[in-house]
């Protein structure tokens, strides 16, 4: 296996230093993004696009970089630019679909997600998001309740009951560390955490959203299809993530010393409880 990465980075850097709009700018910016050097990746993209304002992939990469730094407006602007240049661009339609879903503009979300689904009918994230958007639009049209900007309630039975008590039955289990349900935005919709209560649970959404995003990318490049489960073993916990359907994700955490079958049994029961609560 040849070690071509570092010489490539150097070559790309030299080309871009000579000419900011050199084709290598995209490879260099992507490499910096993978290394977590987002500011450097942003600078390279912005400089290149000054000289090549119609570079579709450059704008698409810029949108991702803005998304990752939480600048949704700028990300949306870049995706809108991509669509002016490439009206059927999957990533731009998907990105805008999710942004509109987040904002509660379900009609706009549905338009973009339908466009994305036409390009890639099998994409599971688009499929789930579209189900939410369609449900939300139907709910609004019927004058229904529970659509007030909350994507996790849209289109399905609104969750009822106390979200901190959904997994209460596990608290007596000494191996149980916690269980969460994340909505399609990666926000914690349900949480039961042993020991210190659920005060810190809200912070965990981005942690697990990151794992899911990375796993989906890896599955994509390997051609493995939709992800069905992620297991994370740390020295402090054994953590299992699985899709619940409807854009929801179940997270179960247990002691690293739990018996081998503990996680599968607990995930099975937690799935039943989670589905019953969110009404998928």
């Amino acid at each position: 296996m040849s070690d071509a990465g570092l010489p490539d980075l150097q070559r790309w850097s030299e080309e871009v230093a000579r000419d900011p709009a050199a084709p290598a700018f995209l490879s260099l910016a992507r490499a910096y993004r993978k290394q977590g050097r987002r500011d450097a990746a942003l600078r390279i993209c912005l400089r290149a696009l000054e000289h090549q304002p119609t570079h579709v992939e450059g704008h698409a990469l810029l949108a991702l970089l803005y998304l990752e730094t939480g600048e949704l407006e700028k990300a949306s602007d870049e995706w809108a630019t991509v669509l002016r240049l490439d009206p059927d661009n999957f990533d731009a339609h998907r990105g805008l679909g999710f942004v509109y879903l987040e904002r509660g503009d379900y009609e706009a979300a549905r338009r973009h997600l339908e466009s994305a689904a036409r390009v890639r009918p099998g994409d599971p994230a688009v499929r789930d998001a579209l189900a939410l958007a369609n449900g939300a639009v139907a709910g609004v049209a019927a004058g229904g309740a529970a659509v007030a900007g909350d994507a996790s309630a849209a289109g399905v039975h609104a969750p009822v009951g106390d979200p901190t008590r959904v997994f209460e039955e596990f608290l007596a289990d000494p191996n149980f560390v916690g269980a969460l349900v994340l909505d399609i935005r990666g926000l914690v919709a349900v949480s039961t955490v042993a020991g210190d209560g659920h005060g810190g649970a809200d912070q965990l959404g981005p942690v697990f959203s990151e794992a899911i995003e990375e796993a989906a990318r890896l599955a994509g490049v390997l051609g493995l299809g939709a992800w069905r489960g992620i297991q994370l073993h740390t020295d402090a916990a054994l953590i299992h993530l699985s899709p619940l359907g409807g854009g929801y994700t179940l997270v179960v955490a247990g002691s690293p010393n739990a018996p081998p079958d503990w996680m599968m049994r607990t995930v099975g029961r937690a799935t039943e409880l989670g589905l019953a609560f969110v009404g998928v």
Binding site: E210, A211, W227, Q231, L232, T234
Partner: peptide
């Protein structure tokens, strides 16, 4: 990235990451 996020959330040091997908 996952390891860093878990560590920041005080969920321990990542030792293994396992992905299950439809195709493998």
């Amino acid at each position: 990235r996952t390891g860093r996020a878990l560590d920041n959330a005080k969920l321990g040091r990542l030792e293994m990451f396992r992905l299950e997908a439809a195709g493998g």
